[in-house]
Design a binder for these strands. Structure first.
Length: 779
DNA sequence: CTGTCCTCACTTTTT
DNA sequence: GTGAGGACAG
C-alpha cells in the first residue's frame, strides 16, 4: 500500500475509512481529487469489485481526470469498470436500460437547452401567448426549477403556492406550458437534462424492484462537489445509498457557487441529519497557495455565517502580499493587468500559461482582450461556444438524431429545410397543426403526406423526398459503422455541399469543424477512446448517446494552447489553479453583482465566489477595480467592492494605480464629481490609502507608464482600434489563430471588406477577410 | 423564402 | 456597445 504513504494524516484517514457514511470537507488546494481517487483505488485494492463502485461528478472533465489517475494505481481494465461519470451520463445510461418502465424507447433523444427553449417557444406560440411575457428562457428556468425539486407538471398545477406565485407575477399559464412541454417531450421520445435526474427519481419511486437492483449493485457510492447537488440529485444518492450506507461525499461548502442552477448548499450543511453515524474528515492543509493568499481568502470567507467550521492553513512560505490595482477606467484596468503580466513574465520567468484573468461576467473579457492584444500577449478565452453548440455541428447532429429517433421534433424542424429544399414556414406550420389534430408525431404526418390532400403536388413531393432521405439513413443504422453512416449523411443530406459554397473564413472553419466531428466519430468507431466502457454499440446511435452529454471537445490540450494567458469567469475557474491570478472588476454592483445583493444568501454566495477566485492563485494574486466602467454603452461610476475591504489589510499592498489618474483623461463635466468621490473614498477607506509615501516607479515602469499614456491618448482621441491588421502590408509574416504562420501575398478591397491572400506554412494559401481574422504580425 | 434593418435586453451556466 | 431575433420589404 505504498500509495498511502504519500498522504497526510487527514487525507489518509479519509481514504482508509471506507465503511459507512463519510463526509470529506476539502478546502481549496487540499488534495481533494487525490483523496477521492486514492479512496477508490484503495477500495479496489481491498477486494471491492470495480462495478460495485459508483462515483458521481459534475463535469466530464472531472470524471475523466479521476479515471486517469485511478488507472495509474490499479489496472486500466479495473478502472474502466467503475461506474464513474457525471450525474447526467450515469443516469442516462441507467435510464436507457430501464426506459421501457417509463414508456420511453431506449434510444430516446436528450434535448439540450436550445432544443428545450425552441420547444417552449413553439408551445407558447401555439397557445397564443406573448413570448415577451413568457420568455422561453424564463419558462425554461421555471420548469427546470420545478423538475430539480421533483415537482411534475401535474403537481405544479395542483400546488396552490406555485400557481399563486405565477398568477401574481402575471404568468398564470406557466403550469399549462409545463404540462404541454412534458407531453411534447414524451411524444418526441426526448428527455431534457433535468429529466435525466427527474425521471431517474420517478423510475426508482415507481419501480421498487429497479431501485433494489441498483441499491444492491452499488455497494460504494462517492459524490464529488457535493455542495453543488440539487434536491433531485440529493434524493437519488440518498435512495441508492440506503441499503449499504457506504456513501462518501466530498465537497467544500465555501465553494458552493451554483445555487442559481438549483444547487442547494443545505445538502452538505445538513448532511449529518440523514446519517447520524457520519464520520467527517476535514482536509484543511492547502498545498496550492502562499500563506498570504490562504489567509486573505480565510479573512474574506469568515464574513459568511452559513458555513461548516474549518480552518484552512498552509506550510507554504508567506509569499507576496495581495496587490490591489486601481484604475480609473475599465480600459485602463485592462492595460494595468496586461502590463503587470508583461512585467512579471520578465521578472519571475513565468510563461503566459501561468497567468489567469478572472472576472464576474463574460462581457468583461473584451477590455482585457484588447489590452492583451495591444501588448501582443497571447490569450485564450474559456467558456465560449463549445464545439457541440456550434450551428454546423448541431445541424449535422440533428440529422443523426432524426435518423435514430424520428419522433425527435426539434431535430426534424431544424433540418427539414436545411439545406433549403423549399419546405417553408407555412408548410411546417400546417404539418404541426395536422400532427396536433391527429395526435401523432410530425414525422408520421410526413410519412403519409402524399396521401393527404392538404398539400399540393410540389410540396408533397418535396416532403416525400425528405422522408425517404431520412428513412434511407435509418435503414443503414445497423449496417454501416457510425463513421461510414455519418460521412454518408453529411454528403447526401446536402449539408456539405451547402457549406462548400461558402468560401469565407467562417465557412472554411465550419467545414473543418464538421471534419473534426467526423474524426471524433471515427475514433468512436475504432474504439480509440479508452474512456468508453463496454463498447455496446458502435453504430451512430451509440455515438449519439455519448455526444448529447458532452460539452467540451477537450480543446485545452490541443495545439500550443497551453502557453496563453487564460481568461474566464470565476465560475469557469473553479477547480483550476494558476501561479498568477488577476481578479478584475471587483466593484460594487458588479462583484457582488447588483442582482445578488438582495438577500443574505445571495450575498454570501457572491462572497464564496470571491473566495473561489482568490484561492485559484498559487503565488501572485492581484485584485483590481476601475473607478469608471462602461456598461451598456454608458460610463458609470464604480466603487471598489466591499470584498476588497474584507481582505485582512495586513495582507494587502496599497493600491497600485497607473499614476496618471489626474491627467485630463476625462474632459467632461463629471470631473469634479469624480474627484470628490475619490476624496470621500480615501477618507472612508483607510485600508486603501497609501500610508507611506509612494515609492517612485522603477525606471522600466516609468517608461511603460508613458507608453500606456500614449496608447491611451491615441485611443481616446481617435477612438479607433489600434488593430494590428491596419498596418498589415504585403510581404509581412503573420500568425493566424487557426492556420498558423504564413506570409501575406496580396491585400485587396477596402476598409471593412479588406481581404488578404496569405500563404500559410502548413495550411496552404487562404483568402482571409481582415475584419474577422485574428492575425498577429510577426515582423 | 431571403436579406436587411431595427429594436431590445443585458450574471454566473458543470449537464 | 453588442449581438440576437423579429418585422418587413423585395
Amino acid at each position: 500500500m505504498e500509495y498511502l504513504s504519500t498522504l497526510n494524516p487527514a487525507q489518509r484517514n479519509a481514504v482508509e475509512h471506507t465503511e459507512g457514511p463519510v463526509m470529506i470537507i476539502a478546502g481549496p488546494g487540499s488534495g481533494k481529487t487525490r483523496v477521492l481517487t486514492y479512496r477508490i483505488a484503495h477500495l479496489i485494492k481491498n477486494g471491492v469489485q470495480p462495478h460495485q463502485i459508483l462515483a458521481l461528478t459534475f463535469t466530464n472533465k472531472a470524471a475523466r481526470e479521476m479515471k486517469e489517475r485511478i488507472k495509474a494505481i490499479v489496472s486500466g481494465s479495473e478502472a474502466s469498470n467503475i461506474w464513474m461519470g457525471t450525474f447526467h451520463s450515469v443516469f442516462a445510461r441507467i435510464l436507457r436500460v430501464e426506459a421501457e418502465r417509463l414508456g420511453y424507447p431506449p434510444g430516446f433523444t436528450i434535448y439540450d437547452t436550445d432544443d428545450s427553449k425552441s420547444l417552449i417557444k413553439s408551445i407558447t406560440q401555439g397557445m397564443g401567448l406573448d413570448d415577451k411575457i413568457y420568455k422561453p428562457s424564463l419558462v425554461y428556468n421555471r420548469i427546470s426549477n420545478a423538475k430539480n425539486n421533483l415537482i411534475s407538471a401535474r403537481e405544479y398545477l395542483n400546488n396552490p403556492d406555485v400557481t399563486f406565485e405565477d398568477r401574481s407575477s402575471g404568468k398564470p399559464k406557466l403550469g399549462f406550458i409545463y404540462q404541454a412541454y412534458e407531453e411534447r417531450c414524451f411524444k418526441s421520445s426526448a428527455m431534457d437534462f433535468d429529466d435525466l435526474l427527474f425521471k431517474t427519481n420517478v423510475l426508482f419511486k415507481n419501480n421498487p424492484d429497479v431501485l433494489y437492483k441498483y441499491q444492491q449493485r452499488f455497494k460504494f457510492i462517492l459524490v464529488d462537489e457535493y455542495q453543488d447537488t440539487n434536491y433531485s440529485q440529493y434524493l437519488i444518492v440518498k435512495k441508492l445509498a440506503a441499503m449499504h450506507q457506504n456513501i462518501c461525499v466530498v465537497g467544500d461548502d465555501a465553494q458552493s457557487i451554483y445555487s442559481f442552477r438549483g444547487a442547494n448548499i443545505q445538502n452538505i450543511l445538513k448532511f449529518e441529519k440523514d446519517y447520524p453515524e457520519l464520520s467527517v474528515f476535514k482536509l484543511e492543509q492547502n498545498y496550492r497557495s502562499t500563506k498570504n493568499i490562504v489567509e486573505a481568502a480565510n479573512s474574506v470567507i469568515k464574513y459568511n455565517q452559513d458555513q461548516l467550521k474549518k480552518s484552512v492553513w498552509t506550510e507554504n512560505p508567506d509569499g507576496e502580499r495581495i496587490k490591489i490595482l486601481e484604475a480609473s477606467t475599465d480600459n485602463e484596468e485592462g492595460q494595468l493587468v496586461a502590463n503587470k503580466i508583461f512585467e512579471l513574465r520578465m521578472q519571475n520567468q513565468l510563461g503566459n500559461g501561468d497567468f489567469a484573468i478572472l472576472y464576474r461576467t463574460n462581457s468583461q473579457s473584451r477590455t482585457m482582450e484588447e489590452a492583451l492584444r495591444k501588448r501582443n500577449i497571447p490569450y485564450r478565452i474559456y467558456g465560449g461556444l463549445s464545439f457541440y453548440k456550434r450551428k454546423e455541428i448541431k445541424d449535422i447532429i440533428a440529422y443523426f438524431r432524426l435518423s435514430v429517433n424520428s419522433n425527435d421534433e426539434e431535430a426534424l424542424k431544424r433540418v427539414i429545410n436545411y439545406p433549403v429544399r423549399g419546405i417553408g414556414k407555412t408548410t411546417i406550420e400546417r404539418l404541426e397543426v395536422l400532427a396536433d389534430e391527429q395526435k401523432v408525431t410530425l414525422f408520421s404526418i410526413l410519412e403519409q403526406c402524399n396521401m393527404v390532400p392538404y398539400f399540393n403536388a410540389g410540396t408533397s413531393k418535396k416532403l416525400t423526398e425528405f422522408v425517404y432521405l431520412i428513412k434511407s439513413f435509418k435503414a443503414q443504422m445497423n449496417k454501416l459503422t457510425a463513421y461510414d453512416l455519418a460521412k454518408h449523411i453529411t454528403t447526401s443530406s446536402g449539408l456539405m455541399r451547402e457549406l462548400e459554397t461558402d468560401k469565407t473564413p467562417e465557412g472554411i472553419s465550419k467545414i473543418e469543424n464538421i471534419e473534426e466531428l467526423l474524426n471524433a466519430i471515427q475514433e468512436f468507431t475504432d474504439g480509440i477512446d479508452e474512456n468508453k466502457e463496454e463498447p455496446l454499440n458502435r453504430n451512430l446511435e451509440g455515438f449519439l448517446q455519448d455526444v448529447a452529454l458532452l460539452t467540451d471537445a477537450d480543446e485545452s490540450d490541443k495545439d500550443g494552447e497551453k502557453n496563453k494567458v487564460s481568461l474566464m469567469t470565476i465560475h469557469a475557474a473553479k477547480g483550476l489553479e494558476f501561479p498568477c491570478v488577476f481578479v478584475v472588476g471587483v466593484e460594487e454592483n458588479l462583484f457582488p453583482s447588483q442582482l445578488s445583493i438582495g438577500t443574505k444568501e445571495e450575498l454570501e454566495e457572491e462572497r464564496r465566489l470571491f473566495y473561489v477566485a482568490l484561492t485559484r492563485a498559487e503565488k501572485h494574486l492581484f485584485v483590481s477595480y476601475a473607478q469608471n466602467r462602461y456598461r451598456y454603452g454608458q460610463i458609470h461610476h464604480a466603487e471598489p467592492s466591499r470584498f476588497v475591504d474584507e481582505i485582512d489589510e495586513r495582507l494587502v499592498d496599497k493600491p497600485i494605480s497607473s499614476g496618471y489618474n489626474n491627467s485630463n483623461f476625462f474632459s467632461g463635466g463629471f470631473d469634479d464629481e469624480r474627484k470628490q468621490n475619490w476624496g470621500n473614498k480615501n477618507s472612508q477607506k483607510p485600508t486603501l490609502t497609501p500610508t507611506f509615501p509612494k515609492p517612485s516607479l522603477p525606471k522600466n515602469l516609468v517608461k511603460m507608464d508613458q507608453a500606456i499614456k500614449q496608447i491611451n491618448s491615441a485611443a481616446t482621441i481617435s477612438n479607433t482600434d489600434n488593430e494590428p491588421q491596419q498596418s498589415l502590408s504585403e510581404g509581412m509574416n503573420v500568425e493566424h489563430q487557426r492556420f498558423g504562420k504564413g506570409k501575406v501575398m496580396l491585400i485587396e478591397g477596402n476598409l471593412s471588406d479588406q481581404k488578404a491572400t496569405i500563404n500559410f506554412d502548413i495550411a496552404g494559401t487562404k483568402q482571409i477577410l481582415l475584419k474577422f481574422a485574428k492575425l498577429r504580425i510577426l515582423d
